[in-house]
């Protein structure tokens, strides 16, 4: 483990001096951005992890009624959720394609990929909103049951993170456009794509959790010691 060997260095002892002569240089923007993105994904993971832990804990109180399991419950039929998932997956795929194209310097394809990615992402958000309205129309209000509350809360927090990603993406595109440096698109774009895949993974976890039957939820909760 390099971390452990680093921590065991004795810094007061003479060490190999910097090999390259000449002036020291400032940090590389891409690697700083990559580090920052890793931290962001770690923070967002912690955020959702905590939400999910509270979900499992809360699910063990008698008033909790899962949204799936019985035929009349909305997520027993998961087709709507799969449709939304397909939209988000499409967005993720398009972003991936855009990155690949940018790396191969096929800028037209890259731009098309990003446009498709944004289109599918917006479609996903609208589909989620539509899902909210359907659930409300069925009488599953945000405060009528904790399972409903968690559904609205988790999808809203997830959606906000996707929106945040789109703001950053817009910023990147604008600057690349403005500086006329389309060639430098692939680096920042690949970070965006990573974030997109990450949000897709988060959504899949949320999907699995929200569409779980009471039995699955209870088993998970028991696993966590609740």
């Amino acid at each position: 483990m390099s971390l452990f060997s680093t921590l065991r260095e004795k810094p007061w002892e003479p060490q190999p001096q910097p090999a390259v002569p000449g002036p020291a240089v400032a940090a590389d923007p891409m690697s700083t951005a990559r580090t920052a993105l890793r931290f962001i994904m770690a923070i967002v993971s912690v955020l959702f992890f905590l939400f999910i832990i509270t979900f499992l804990s809360r699910s063990q109180y008698p008033d909790f009624q899962a949204l799936a399991g019985q035929p009349w419950q909305p997520f027993t039929d998961t087709s709507r959720l799969w449709f939304n998932t397909a939209l988000l997956g499409g967005s993720s795929l398009a972003m991936h394609w855009a990155v690949m194209s940018a790396r191969r310097e096929q800028l037209n394809h890259a731009v098309l990929g990003v446009s498709l990615g944004v289109f599918f992402a917006i479609a996903f958000l609208l589909a989620q909103l539509d899902l909210w309205q359907r659930l409300s129309a069925l009488g599953y209000y945000v405060n009528s049951n904790p399972a409903n509350s968690y559904f609205y809360l988790l999808t809203a927090v997830h959606g906000l993170h996707l929106l945040g990603g789109m703001v950053v993406l817009a910023n990147i595109l604008f600057r690349v456009w403005y500086d006329d440096s389309l060639a430098s698109l692939s680096g920042p774009l690949s970070l965006c794509a990573q974030y997109w895949h990450f949000l897709l993974a988060v959504w899949l976890v949320l999907f699995a959790l929200l569409a779980s039957s009471p039995g699955t939820i209870n088993a998970l909760a028991a696993l966590c010691g609740f």
Partner: peptide, 25 residues
């Protein structure tokens, strides 16, 4: 801080919903 503040954020959001929307977290 980066890993701990999310817990405060989670509790703040859920308590706000309890207060404003009437959820029962």
């Amino acid at each position: 801080g980066l890993l701990a503040f999310p817990a405060l954020l989670v509790s703040a959001i859920m308590m706000l919903l309890d207060k404003i929307v009437g959820t029962s977290f």
